[in-house]
Amino acid sequence: MSTLQWIDAKSVDEAVALLSADAHGTIAKAGGMDLLDLIKEGIVAPTRIVNLQHIDALRGVQFAQATGLRLGALTTLAEIAGNSSIRERYPALAEAAAHAATPQIRNAATIGGNLLQRPRCWYFRNELFHAARQEVGREQAQYGAIFDNSKTTMVHASTPATALLAYGASVHVAGKSGKARAIALSDFLLPPDFNRPRDTALANDEVLTHVSLPAIGANTRAAYHKQTERDSYDWPICDVAVVLTLANGKVEAAKIVAGAVAPVPRRLTASEKALVGREIDESVAAEAARAAVRGATPTEKNSYKVPILETVIRRTILAAMA
């Protein structure tokens, strides 16, 4: 019989203590979306759930022009999508949150859980393939990675991560004895792996407390696009976030990130370089997009993603300027 235990943690410290005491059987739960999915698929079987929902310190959206944005780990995707400060200042993030999952899921899914979710790879999501503890069926990876895919074609599932990376977000975690640390999101996300309990730098006994985004300059332009087969509710073929800082009509700095094309969202530095110091028009955007897909290593089934990515980069750069 199931012996699953449920504990409502009252504080971050209590949650950390519970996780430390039993690092293997205990799982922290925020919105519970991915956890329930993994339990139902037989991929995880926790003996204890530490519920974080009652910890007020993990809630709240704070924005200040000078210091930027702070998202409590329990902030839902719906809250992010609907927050007027975020829509105004971090539109790429608001768009990414608005296009994740379904309205029902966005009402319950948290940003913390979204970043910590496991890949949606259809091999990963079936317990049959976990017995082998390895990814199989690389040739079936039509939705998988077209870069950095020699070890895995699995891609990180978070689409808000694509926008967060473009804004230079950091993840804040709390560990034992009140020890807190901040990790750049680019370091936090790790390539998905069947053999690890998570695809991030979070330790077994740590709790993700909040996400921070640096302040946004006045001359910033941003856009986000998630390319799907269907508009209703779909996983991405790729998604792209573009954040540009302008000076005198020219690009002073650029951050461009693409998701679902590599095991972790990919910073497109070649595209960024192609933009810096230039005034953006169709041909500049096209050049930047082309630069990004050079060196792609698609599989036979996912080579179609390469021209799509190129198109989406070009369009999203232009959308940022529109």
Binding site: W6, K29, G32, M33, L36, D37, N51, Q53, A78, A101, T102, P103, Q104, I105, N107, A108, Y233
Partner: peptide
């Protein structure tokens, strides 16, 4: 949580009740 046939309101917001722990 992919077909929303299980939609109910929780404090007036739509949620997928198949992806909601009863304890929540």
């Amino acid at each position: 949580g992919a077909c929303s046939a299980c939609t109910v309101w929780l404090d007036g917001e739509v949620v997928a009740s198949c992806m909601t722990f009863a304890l929540d």
